[in-house]
Design a protein around this nucleic acid. Structure first.
Lengths: 206, 206
DNA sequence: TAGACCATTGGCCATCTGGACAGTCCTCTT
DNA sequence: AAGAGGACTGTCCAGATGGCCAATGGTCTA
């Protein structure tokens, strides 16, 4: 009997998951929680074989929660479930130690298949996802400073505003942005902003 | 007995909805489909009291489907269910004739409440949603040409590229963009691009 | 018919942006 | 000690961007 822990802030998705998983003989949902904090607690008290975790949640992200979970329990098997498939999201999930990544659009068979794989200690990354992970690795990674600059850029700030915000000269901001454009393989700031959102490098909050 | 039709491309959400709705005495899911085409067919054969419809689906959007449905069946009661709450998304839902709008983050009580409201011919728009509808109405609406220009802008095109794409002069593109900036209450193209995505004016496809 | 709104174009101009080149300072690794 | 990489600053410059003003033609409504 595979014991599963669900972590998702959407009640409807949790209910759907429970229904699908419980209907399948051989799996059982031992607990379902709505955020990262509760996830850690639930993990320790239920010791599930597999954790099915939403990627984007209010508060702590799925990637952060996964990282913290795996720090304490290196053998925890986390399957990330997400509506989004941006390269950066996927890449961060992998980096955090997740053993699988699934779109929320999955059908029943694939979902059960993924959970079974993880329970048997095999990773589960569909071809399209694996493709994105490679794509992300090919591109140069942004440094911390470049990342901060990109975030401000996505907030719509001009070079001057960014320079004031970070207390550096406009020249430096321009250099950072120049590097960002090159690494992201785009040719101007607007494209960088859009690409950042699309790839999941920066998340827009409503 | 309230008859409900579900339209959502995510299997997990459909299952969740069925579970929640069926558990409540007094409601029943008469059919659940994954896209707009099937929705029309299902509506005609099952004549549900309420249609719970996802907003963003591959292919025809929830708003378009709602519009078509209401054209043929003016008394159809559609409750839009969405992960997104951008002003434009909400506004378009209302314009398409939907009688209610709910975030996918709802709890059971609110969901059942909303369905009941619609069945009794009362609209259901939570305060935060109603707020966004007003916000959207306050801002000037983009003309068709401005909308097209904005879409190209979000694709990362320069004024020159847009002018070529639309076969107009750069001067005209600049004017359109100038109007876009004013109507959207932003001060440059990058902010316009981000705001367009955030408010749901333009959708990014992965 | 007059007014309102939209799409179109042109010109002028201050500012912003992004590329290229040069150089300093610091930290970490070899 | 040497080298690599990152953050930082500056200068020069062509081209893009956005504001402002002026003008034409088409459509739709009052």
């Amino acid at each position: 009997m595979i014991k599963v822990l669900l972590v998702d802030d959407h009640m409807l998705v949790r209910v759907g998951l429970i229904e699908v998983i419980e209907t399948h003989g051989g799996m059982k949902v031992v607990a379902d929680v709505a955020n990262g904090e509760e996830a850690l607690v639930a993990y320790e008290s239920h010791r599930p074989d597999v954790v099915v975790m939403d990627f984007r949640m209010p508060g702590e992200s799925g990637a952060d929660t996964t990282r913290r979970l795996i720090e304490r329990h290196p053998d925890a098997k986390v399957l990330i479930l997400s509506v989004y498939e941006g390269e950066e999201d996927v890449g961060r999930a992998v980096q955090s130690g997740a053993r699988g990544y699934l779109s929320k659009g999955v059908d029943t068979a694939d979902l059960l298949d993924a959970i079974t794989s993880l329970a048997e200690d095999r990773p589960y990354f569909p071809a399209r996802i694996a493709q994105k992970i490679r794509k992300r690795d090919e591109r140069g990674r942004l440094t911390e400073r470049e990342m901060t600059t990109l975030e401000l850029l996505v907030q719509g700030m001009s070079n001057k505003e960014i320079s004031q915000e970070l207390s550096i000269s406009v020249a430096t901001v321009k250099l950072h942005i120049s590097n960002i454009l090159e690494k992201m393989e785009v040719s101007d700031r607007t494209q960088a902003a859009i690409a950042a959102v699309q790839r999941g490098v920066v998340h827009l909050d409503d």
